[in-house]
Amino acid sequence: MVLIRLIDGLNEIVGKAVSYVAVIFAGMIIYDVVMRYGFNAPTLWAFDLTKMFFGFYFVLLGGYALRHQAHVKVDLVTENLPSRPRQIVEVLGYLIFFFPFCWVFVIKSWEFALRSYAQGETTYGAVQIPVYPVKIAMAVAACLLAIQGVSEVLKLIFKQSEQRHVG
């Protein structure tokens, strides 16, 4: 289905692009450690900036992780079920738990980001870095996670209908 490929492709691209952020913030940490302990000249910006990069990295990989089934799942209930009941329970889990969580995550993170931007919120360090980009990333991450949930539910539904036609 085109929608599934589109959503999966978007989260794949975002996931791979964001993975490079880990290299950047690792480089910043190494630079700061060398400056601090090697030259007794700590940076003013590295701590705040690495926290922000880690925030980007952490939140924006949620949809990518769901796409690759890398989230923690409680399979105790479903592991012994036959295929069709397992798929039904998984779809119900998305509808009852996942999508309401995503709805709250999208709404609250968007409000959080708008408030941060409107207030001109910055970090408290010696170098005051704007905070709103990370908070906007939270809202984007919430949307990416929610649409990946749609993709996963569609995969479960289509897998279910394929099994019904094959079996």
Rank of each mutant, 00 (worst) to 15 (best):
I147L: 08
V23K: 00
M138F: 04
I129P: 12
G55Y: 09
Y31K: 00
K73P: 01
R67N: 15
V23Q: 00
F39Q: 07
K73V: 11
G9E: 05
M1T: 14
F101L: 12
K16H: 07
Q87D: 15
P42H: 02
S109W: 00
T122P: 09
Q160P: 01
A41E: 11
L156C: 12
S116F: 01
Y37M: 01
Q163P: 03
Q160H: 11
G15Y: 01
E162C: 06
Y37F: 12
E152V: 02
K73D: 15
V166T: 12
F39S: 01
I24L: 02
V59A: 15
M35E: 08
Y57M: 03
V2S: 11
M35C: 06
L49M: 15
V21K: 00
P42Y: 00
N80D: 15
Y64I: 06
D48V: 03
V21W: 01
D8G: 12
S116I: 01
V59D: 10
K73G: 04
F47E: 11
N11H: 03
D8L: 09
F25Q: 00
K51T: 14
L81K: 05
G27K: 04
V134T: 12
R67Q: 13
E12W: 05
Q128C: 05
S151I: 05
P130R: 08
K155S: 05
W110H: 12
L49T: 15
P133N: 02
L66H: 10
I24W: 00
